[in-house]
Every structure is written in structure tokens, then in C-alpha cells.
């Protein structure tokens, strides 16, 4: 058509004309800027694990409102009533001590944000698919979290209060790593959100702030499981040593919790046997007496 050459060149045409009109220096600068902008959505500015602060067992680190001490990493067949979703799999347990150092309550679900699944551990997701070792913290499966003192699930951590917690993932039954890498991911305080609609909360950054290699305590035999009220059943594997007392207390007091049943995530409460009901904070009771009650 005769007037076609006078038609609007479009955004791309304008950009091409503008770029062509630039000198060499201008082209270099604009090209660099375009490359930076294009890379931004793909994580060009994300912190890399190499920048992480070294993390060691029993070292105290601060993440968001928490003081966190990673105590040990344990591989186990069961943790009390908590069993892997696939019976052929195992449980990977990170035992940690957490304290809320702020003046306001913190939600315990944030522990799942700041302790991503360990790397090189053979962790599988809830559909038993292996998790790549190069998965970003935010893409790794979330753990179930239990208060070791009573085998219940934590919901809130108030200022100054310290809990010893078990963070539990499903682990491939064939995986037997001697060491795994434990990362901690950061939280960013949002004083005032966009337009003031959501203020004053901790936002997961999914950026690794601390990282360290930990030995993995391998599974042990399941001796003593399911007898009496001692509560030395499944939990023994993950909580041996000084957690024994905690499990024993769970043994006598969490029977009611086991009544609630099967739980979620990693299959908490499977030891119920009778399979009565569902519930979040069931299961971790992990004890013979609890199971006996619920079975009845």
C-alpha cells in the first residue's frame, strides 16, 4: 500500500531506530543495561551459597527473630509414631534449639522457611520424588516440626522461650549419606508493606545465610518398639541420648494427641495403628502407650 512506509514503526521499530542512532559508547552502555534488566527476574541479584556464613554444630546463629542452634542430623526409620509416607523410605531429622529473641510472638511455621531441606541427604518430597541438590531453598520440601519435649507440633514461639525441635523430612530409603549440608535461609523484616496493607512481618528471603556440613547419625535398630508405657519406641532413633527424657514424657502424655490420628506431611501418627481420625499435632507422640490408647 502506498502509505505503508509512513505507518507507525511500533515499539520495536522505535527501539531499533533509537539504538541505531546511538554512538558506539551509547550502544555498549544501553546493551549492558538491557542485559542487566533481562537477568534480574532470573535471580541475578540473589545471594549465592558461597557467601553464606559457616555453620557448625552447637553454634548459635541469629536468623530473623530466632536464635538457632543446630544440634545434629539424624537418619531414622521412625520417629515415634511419625513414619515416612513410603515404608521403604526413612526420615531425616534435624535437631535444633530455637529461641525467639524478639519482643513479639513468632510463628513456628517460619522454622520451615529458615531451615530448608538439607542438601546431599537424599530428601524426597511428599510424592517420593527426589529433590535435586541444586534446588533453591524456597523450592525444597518443607519439614514437619515437633517440640521434642512433648512430641507435639509447635504453633507459636513467644518472646524469650526456647524449644528443642525436630524438623523432619522424608528421605530416600537407599540414601545413606555420611554428611549433609545444612543451610539456613534468611528472613527480612517488613515494617510497612505496599500501601500499608500488610505491615510488620518476617518475609522469607529464600537466600542462604548460613551453611555447614554435618555428620549424619545413621538409623539404629528398633528394639523396644511398642511395649508398655515407657515411650522408648520409635522416637529412640532420632532422639537418643539426652532426648530420652523428653520422649518418655511424650509417652505418657501424648496419648490423647495420638487419638487425633494420622496427621499430615511426613505421615505423622501412622503408628496409631487403628488409623483413627486425622490431625496435625497427633502422631509425634511416638510412644507405645499413646498408640495403645488410640488403638483402643
Amino acid at each position: 500500500m502506498k502509505h505503508a512506509r509512513n505507518a507507525a514503526p511500533g515499539l520495536l521499530g522505535v527501539a531499533q531506530n533509537l539504538f541505531a542512532s546511538l554512538g558506539t559508547t551509547g550502544k555498549v552502555i544501553s546493551g549492558t543495561l538491557a542485559a542487566v534488566v533481562a537477568a534480574t527476574p532470573f535471580g541475578a541479584w540473589n545471594a549465592v551459597a558461597d557467601d553464606a556464613i559457616p555453620l557448625a554444630a552447637d553454634a548459635t546463629v541469629e536468623v530473623g527473630p530466632y536464635e538457632v542452634v543446630i544440634e545434629k542430623v539424624v537418619s531414622t526409620k521412625t520417629l515415634g509414631d511419625v513414619q515416612p509416607l513410603d515404608p521403604a523410605d526413612k526420615l531425616l531429622v534435624v535437631v535444633a534449639e530455637v529461641t525467639n529473641t524478639s519482643d513479639v510472638p513468632a510463628h513456628a511455621h517460619q522454622l520451615a522457611d529458615i531451615v530448608p531441606a538439607p542438601v546431599g541427604a537424599g530428601v524426597v518430597d511428599t510424592e517420593s520424588r527426589p529433590v535435586p541438590d541444586d534446588a533453591e531453598p524456597g523450592d525444597r520440601p518443607l519439614p514437619n516440626r515437633y517440640n521434642i519435649a512433648d512430641a507435639g507440633e509447635l504453633d507459636v514461639i513467644n518472646p524469650g522461650v526456647t524449644y528443642r525441635v525436630a524438623l523432619v523430612w522424608n528421605q530416600d530409603g537407599d540414601a545413606a549419606p555420611e554428611t549433609v549440608r545444612v543451610d539456613l535461609a534468611g528472613l527480612h523484616w517488613i515494617e510497612e508493606g505496599f500501601a500499608g496493607l500488610d505491615d510488620e512481618y518476617w518475609l522469607p528471603t529464600d537466600e542462604v545465610t548460613h551453611s555447614g556440613m554435618f555428620d549424619v547419625e545413621p538409623p539404629k535398630s528398633q528394639a523396644g518398639n511398642g511395649s508398655g508405657s515407657g515411650g522408648d519406641g520409635g522416637g529412640a532413633d532420632a532422639g537418643e541420648g539426652d532426648t530420652g527424657g523428653a520422649e518418655a514424657s511424650g509417652g505418657t502424655d501424648t496419648g490423647g494427641g495420638a487419638d487425633d490420628g494420622a496427621g499430615t506431611g511426613t505421615g505423622a501418627g501412622a503408628g496409631d495403628g487403628a488409623g483413627a481420625g486425622t490431625g496435625d499435632d497427633a502422631g509425634a507422640g511416638g510412644t507405645a502407650s499413646g498408640s495403645a490408647e488410640s488403638g483402643a
Binding site: 517440640n147 519435649a149 512433648d150 514461639i157 522461650v161 505418657t252 502424655d253 494427641g257 499435632d281 497427633a282
Partner: peptide, 13 residues
């Protein structure tokens, strides 16, 4: 220090 209802709980504090 301890409560019991729908499952027992041990206080952190």
C-alpha cells in the same frame, strides 16, 4: 509446667 487436654504439652517456659 504441663497441661493436658487433646494431648499433653510441656511448656518451653
Amino acid at each position: 509446667q504441663r497441661i493436658d487436654g487433646e494431648g499433653g504439652a510441656q511448656a518451653g517456659g
